[in-house]
Design a protein around this nucleic acid. Structure first.
Lengths: 254, 254
DNA sequence: CGTCGTGTTGCAGCATGTGCAACGACCATT
DNA sequence: AATGGTCGTTGCACATGCTGCAACACGACG
């Protein structure tokens, strides 16, 4: 909508692929060098872009700061975290929390055996949206039409022999998930890893987040993992309740 | 330099503090609502901003993707990582790798007892630049004038009784660090945590990164930690050598 | 010493972003 | 139901501020 800003922002993904000098940026943007220079300077002033010794431009540190602050301000994460930790203590496995945002599913919290980590390698990377239990839960809740649109647009990489093969199968799976209120990923992403997940709902019943427990085959069989389902669902429901209760935290009396 | 882009980018830190609606954004930017709307729309198209159900704007997922890609493309990190892991195996303590970038020091890698983590809670947060060993190493290498300028501009929070109290003390410390070629942080940030660090240098001898080993008092005394210094320096030198060797990877013959 | 390849600057022209005012949607209140 | 208020959205006329050009500065290279 705004040409100038549009161009400036297009520089970021371009630099994400690796450093580039002024000429390259200008060329790939399709604008004059002087224009690119001014845009880069503006980005630089805001710390989104950094100029290394060889004069080439890189993405800057402020980007991390922003991403960091963004994830910390997710109230769902804040509310859910203690529940996730508790669940982890009970079952010992890795616990994930994820949200859906414009055709992407995004991990926003994770508790592993020993360390509560706030930001991980997986954030930002394309989540295996066609197979992950949390992805199924989040997509299953979309309105019918949107669900279909999204499913059609997706790629269906065959991570393993048990990955979701195509849109039809995925929609079927989503319907099942929607009905039963929980989801699994049995070796669909990595042959030896299984997950069970349950949805977190807001006041209006819509799914606002999803959580899952993951464990490798070698530790527990899929059946054993499935036996954790009641516990997982109870945890998700507890988060839902607390989130719904706290949703309108409008100042009633200061 | 570019007004439009400048305004658009100013929205990001604003939203980092928490979700805001159109009116708030317009007001805090000092522009008309319609202007703010157009800027937000452009940011939205690029995925940097997300609109939640209540119509308020939040920072978007693409931000994570960018931050993620940015950190992965740091070649220093890639080269250093195996060395950091090796060092961690030898001594068992937490190992950090950091770089300096426009008045900020930034952790870009970390190896902890059990998990190699690629992105951590600390990235993006203001590093304790006045006390951290890696910060001292990176700042100590700046040219005299810049070093002074930076030192004057900094705040000197008294994290503990042993924190660097002011610019004068800091500059003195930097001089010492510069001379001896290594640095420590003995309880300057957290009373019970000590660190020893050494610089990683590029071909031209300039410090391009810094690494450190941290351990709590209860595990090893400061003296014991200091006994690791030779090992730390050897590791840093190994990284320097490999980085210098690989620095000009220009295609000599396709 | 000249040539090439950079990044940088000033400027004229006009595309583009700007603020205004009016509209529509929604909610709360009466 | 009707009213008033808030908030997001749209179309438009104006002029701001962005654009691309051409010329300059600087360093590397032969």
């Amino acid at each position: 909508m705004s040409q100038t800003v549009d161009r400036a922002l297009s520089i970021l993904p371009l630099l994400a692929q690796g450093p580039a000098d002024l000429g390259q940026v200008a060329e790939r943007l399709g604008v004059h060098k002087s224009t690119a220079l001014r845009l880069l300077r503006t980005l630089h002033e805001h710390g989104l872009v950094y100029r290394q010794q060889d004069q080439r431009y890189r993405l800057g540190a402020r980007l991390f700061a922003l991403a960091q602050e963004a994830v910390e301000n997710l109230d769902i994460r804040e509310i859910a975290h203690p529940h996730l930790t508790a669940l982890n203590h009970e079952c010992g496995h890795t616990v994930h929390l994820a949200v859906y945002e414009e055709n992407e599913v995004l991990y926003i919290d994770k508790v592993e055996s020993r360390y509560p980590v706030r930001m991980y390698s997986r954030i930002g990377k394309p989540v295996a949206i066609t197979v992950a239990a949390v992805a199924k839960l989040l997509l299953a809740d979309l309105p019918e039409s949107e669900r279909r649109t999204v499913a059609e647009k997706l790629d269906y990489p065959a991570y393993t022999s048990r990955s979701t093969p195509n849109a039809a199968a995925f929609l079927e799976e989503l319907a099942r998930v929607r009905e039963q209120g929980w989801a699994t990923d049995l070796g669909g992403h990595e042959e030896s890893i299984n997950c069970v997940g349950a949805p977190v709902r807001g006041t209006d019943g819509r799914v606002v987040a999803a959580m899952s427990v993951s464990a490798p085959n070698v530790v527990v069989t899929a059946e054993e993992l499935l036996s954790l389902l009641p516990l997982v669902r109870r945890t998700a429901d507890a988060i839902s309740r607390e989130y719904s209760g706290n949703t309108p935290p409008k100042e009633t009396s200061a």
